[in-house]
Amino acid sequence: MPNENKQINHVAMVGDRTIPPKDARFIEIYIMGQRYKVPETLTILKAMEYVGYQFKRSCGCRGGICGACGTFYRILGDHSIYTGLACQTVVEPGMILAQSPFFPPNRADHIGILDSKMPPDEHIATLYPEIFRCVGCGTCTRTCPMGIDVMNYIALFKRGDVLGGAKESFDCIMCGLCVVRCPANITQMKVGLAGRRIAAAQLIPRSEVTKKRAEQVRAGRYETMLAELGQMDREKLKEIYTSREREPNLSGPGEWMPKDQSHL
């Protein structure tokens, strides 16, 4: 990172090529204790890139779904800790920002989780006994940028309702912000993941449709088509990709069928 970028009011275009709106107002924010002026309307991630930071970790899809850029911030003069996804949260005046690349989680050994015959509730208890340390403070729930009732799903796992916990934790994007804040050192996101896997293996009925399709795939149904694609050169691939038929937005199930049905 070039040094001059650190100075206030110095506009630079580096990193992810942030393009601020032409008549954007500039607001003052703090990044790792340094004061900067950035155009408003930028997200936290873009604002940090705007002043010169480059992200190799703690950023991902930039679409609010991968959970890599979960971030904590404060606002000047406010004691609260706020949370959000850096790629989704728009900067406000007085924000105090930093991105942390990684926080060590506890990941229990999941090998064999799908074939285990242990009752689901006991399985969770043996994989992650620390859930019984939960003090019920609810910090995780208040932290979650996805609005999941994290404490509730931990509570559900504790009382052996693995299916309930799996459903409650379903929206989790594994950003790990709850893990950072937990006073009982629980790794909530991994508990939820294990719970969902156990629920999927033991409690949720298997889909017949998926099974049928998997058999078709294994029987080599798509081998010839894949081989065809493998033969094509780059230009041809680009061409058929751009000219592909697309399902119209908002069409209901079964309403639309492609003209070329040879691959169905």
Binding site: E122, A125, T126, P129, E130, F132, R133, K158, R159
Partner: peptide
């Protein structure tokens, strides 16, 4: 030590014993 408790103990013990134990010994 949480992870030294043994699968058998964790799987068979009553929840309230585990919770109280963790509160008092950890």
């Amino acid at each position: 030590i949480l992870h030294a408790l043994g699968q058998e103990f964790l799987a068979n013990s009553t929840q309230q014993a585990v919770v109280s134990g963790f509160r008092k010994f950890v």
